[in-house]
Amino acid sequence: MAEHREFLTRRLHSLLGVIPIGIFLVQHLVVNHFAVYGEENFNKAADFMHGLPFRLLLEFVVIYLPILFHAILGVYIVFVARSNTKNYGFFRNWMFVLQRVTGIITFVYIVWHVWETRIQIGSQGADYSLMEGILSSPFMFWFYIIGLIATVFHFANGLWSFFVTWGITQSPKSQKIATYATVVVFLALSYVGVRTLITFAYGV
């Protein structure tokens, strides 16, 4: 048997995007939505997440290492593509380009986000006032909005190609239904996230 290293790394890349990164993303957006229910609720939830047993190990295994792998290989994938929407302006081809554009935006956003809300503050957990302070600046608010929308798009559209890559949706019909389903995922998660950001920024 040949080694098939390229095949296996690309399959791992596809898998990690959904499990665990995608699942973490959903969880992260939902837990942060506690902010909408008030400062106290958010801090309680943040403390709970921060106080999870084996937190550092969980962070590395579930979040940092998978994202690092996905991001580094992802940047390589972006650079070996030659987008051609000018001559072939089909819907999926635009999604192909947007998947790569949002991937790069997401990468930049996540680096900044992790630095600001995790590394910079050391071992104490993030709380409501930290996010309030960051997002009260209009520039940072819009940076977060763009980063969030890009991340959610990258996840939703990535979920669509995950279903193709793993051979789940084969027929054109199932792929079309999957498109609608992932649009719903995109809209729903965007709402969950944007609503939270608005609360942090404007207290409503």
Binding site: F7, F90, R92
Partner: peptide, 11 residues
């Protein structure tokens, strides 16, 4: 260079 090179642009 095999099937993993597909990026689902569907062109």
């Amino acid at each position: 260079g095999g099937i993993d090179g597909c990026g689902n642009s569907q062109n």
